[in-house]
Nucleic acid binder design. Structure first.
Length: 552
RNA sequence: GCGCCCGUAGCUCAACGGAUAGAGCACUUGACUACGGAUCAAGAGGUUGCAAGUUCGAAUCUUGCCGGGCGCACCA
């Protein structure tokens, strides 16, 4: 019995009661079933009676009683009680619940996966930084969360592609090239250029690789520096992200959009839809037709394409590549883009509620020993992704960033993060995994083949076993909601609760035979339970891109 | 001025409109002579920024204030 099955059973019950004339209900709302915070309230509880009371014209407790009476007759349900103002608290019988262990072990890596988003072809674009410097902590939040969102969407059945848009065109690239060139020639970096120490490193690396470069004519030299530095910097970003276990299926270049004719095609598509017009020598897109607060320029009066023109082309291009849902993950400083991007979709003839989705992540504030660290790429006071990984490791960094919802501002203290790694919740969860792995190893050493032994799920009737099974059973619903809401932190929070349930079980329920003790059915049953808990933790951590150690 | 986001324990943060608002860190106190103590058990800590409203029920939804962050380019 699972939560979904219980919900379905309740829906059927209500329909039956209506058919019998014992209940008058026009519309049966979705029956929500939840896991109560207090274990005294059973394995699951529903407030459906409260929701039905008004339209049924009956006191909620009366409806709850009707439901409870019928529920106890349903297979797998041990008890159903009315509580409080009209809640129905349900307990499953241990055999039915214990079966879950078998289900989980059988499903293996697929446990928790669902089909809610089956058929959706989703593009998840995130980070999309200029290739003019190293990735910093702001990008890192999306590296962790964006990647987790993609994984969670895939677990919900979607076909997902991750994408990084490289802004390799325009003024910033020129400033970047000029900065590196100046540094290589021993000249001061222009005031509006990039001043980080990495500029010097890039300059030095380029000069070593191409000693003749500084003797090239100025214009030629500038291009050479810009292009070489671009290639090096992009490669550096790619290497760091690979180290961070954030994989991108596509690295899309803004230049390539122009060179391949995608910009022209995008423009043609928008014109065809009739939202493009000319004014004062410039070409505009009438985004105000779809909720934007002002129209946007596509082609400037001087004939140059704007950055926004690339954006529109990029969107049209993604659609042409078959993505029916395009998710953009942007920093809070880009929230003004939300309406603009939605309007672009609408201007291209799409449904802006269905084909495009913009998620805004609040900025990460960094403190060091309680004092705020201002992040500025130009001033060079940045905390890079490399730094972070070096200081706290990939697992701790990913988990720490992944356990908070991205739409709330986050303050991280670097000292605390480094110092507190051993107390970081990620270790708590990983420790549970390692502990189980250890038990399973010991079982193997004792020659116990629990998979081949008879498994009697009804033996898992201890309160802690029951609680652990209940938590494990929640996993598919957690994954589904994390995908639906684009909130992978729900998986992290869930894993912490699951780890607690395991540790509590482990504390009082001995798993393996001790000493000369014979192997008994309870040992086998508990090994199945351990294996299912391990699988669940592994699948959950996998969605967050965190490793699952066998030993720590 | 207009717009978006956020105000929850000392700190960092959770909480499909549900029952007594929860974790971690920090603080008190217990538990290892057999599967990993990176654990478990117990305690303390709150007017969910303020005020109205919606309803069986509000941290959550609505409105108005107060406080903070971020945006409002023919820049990228």
């Amino acid at each position: 019995m699972t939560a979904d099955e219980l919900s379905a059973a309740l829906t059927d019950l209500i329909s039956a009661l209506v058919a019998e004339g014992r209940l008058t209900v026009d519309v049966v709302p979705e029956v929500k079933v939840e896991r109560p915070k207090s274990r005294e309230h059973g394995d699951y509880a529903t407030s459906i009676a409260l929701a039905l009371a008004k339209q049924a014209g009956l006191p909620p407790r009366e409806i709850a009683t009707l439901l409870a009476e019928r529920l106890v007759e349903v297979d797998g349900i041990a008890s159903a009680e009315v509580a409080g103002p009209g809640f129905v608290n349900v307990k499953f019988d241990s055999a039915t619940q214990g079966e879950l262990a078998r289900t989980v072990v059988t499903a293996g890596e697929k446990w928790g996966h669902g089909t809610a988003l089956a058929g959706r072809v989703v593009n998840v674009e995130f980070i999309s930084a200029n290739p003019t410097g190293p990735l910093h902590l702001g990008h890192t939040r999306w590296a962790a969360v964006g990647d987790a969102i993609a994984r969670v969407l895939a677990a919900a059945g979607a076909t997902v592609s991750t994408e990084f848009y490289v802004n390799d065109r325009g003024m910033q690239m020129d400033k970047f090239g000029a900065s590196v060139m100046a540094a290589a020639n021993g000249r001061p970096v222009p005031a509006d250029g990039y001043h980080g120490g990495y500029i010097l490193d890039l300059a030095a690396a380029i000069v070593i690789a191409r000693p003749d470069i500084t003797s090239l004519p100025e214009a030629e030299q500038f291009i050479a520096f810009r292009e070489t530095a671009y290639a090096l910097q992009l490669k550096q970003q790619q290497q760091v992200l690979a180290l961070f276990r954030t994989h991108f299926d596509v690295w899309a270049s803004e230049r390539a959009l122009h060179e391949s004719g995608a910009v022209a095609r995008g423009l043609a598509k928008l014109m065809e839809q009739g939202h493009v017009y000319e004014l004062e020598g410039a070409v505009w897109l009438r985004t105000t037709d779809f909720g934007d607060d002002k129209d946007r320029v596509l082609i400037k009066a001087d004939g140059e394409f704007t950055y926004f023109a690339s954006d529109t082309a990029y969107y049209v291009d993604k659609r042409a590549r078959g993505f029916d849902l395009n998710i953009y993950l942007l920093g809070a400083d880009h929230h003004g883009y939300v309406n603009r991007l939605r309007a672009v979709a609408a201007c291209a003839g799409d449904d802006m509620d269905d084909n495009v989705e913009v998620l805004i992540g609040q900025l990460v504030k960094i403190t060091r020993g309680g004092e705020e660290v201002k992040l500025s790429k130009r001033a060079g006071t940045i905390v890079t992704l490399d730094d972070l990984v070096e200081e706290v490791g990939v697992d701790a960094a990913r988990y720490t960033l992944g356990r908070y919802p991205a739409d709330s501002p986050l303050t991280l203290d670097l000292e605390e993060m480094t110092r507190a790694t051993s107390e970081n919740p990620v270790f708590y969860v990983q420790y549970a995994h390692a502990r189980i792995a250890s038990v399973l190893r010991n079982a193997a050493e004792l020659g116990i083949d629990w998979r081949a032994a008879d498994f009697d799920p009804s033996l898992l009737d201890h309160e802690r076993e029951n609680n652990l099974l209940g938590m494990i059973g929640e996993f598919p619903r957690i994954v589904a909601s994390a995908a639906e809401l684009r909130e992978p932190h729900r998986v992290a929070r869930y894993l912490e609760d699951l780890a607690t349930a395991y540790h509590r079980f482990y504390d009082v329920c001995w798993v393996l035979p001790r000493g000369d003790e014979e192997l008994a059915p309870i040992h086998v049953a508990r090994l199945w339970l351990c294996a299912s808990a391990r699988q669940t933790i592994a699948n959950g951590l996998g969605m967050l891109g965190v490793s699952t150690p066998e030993r720590m």
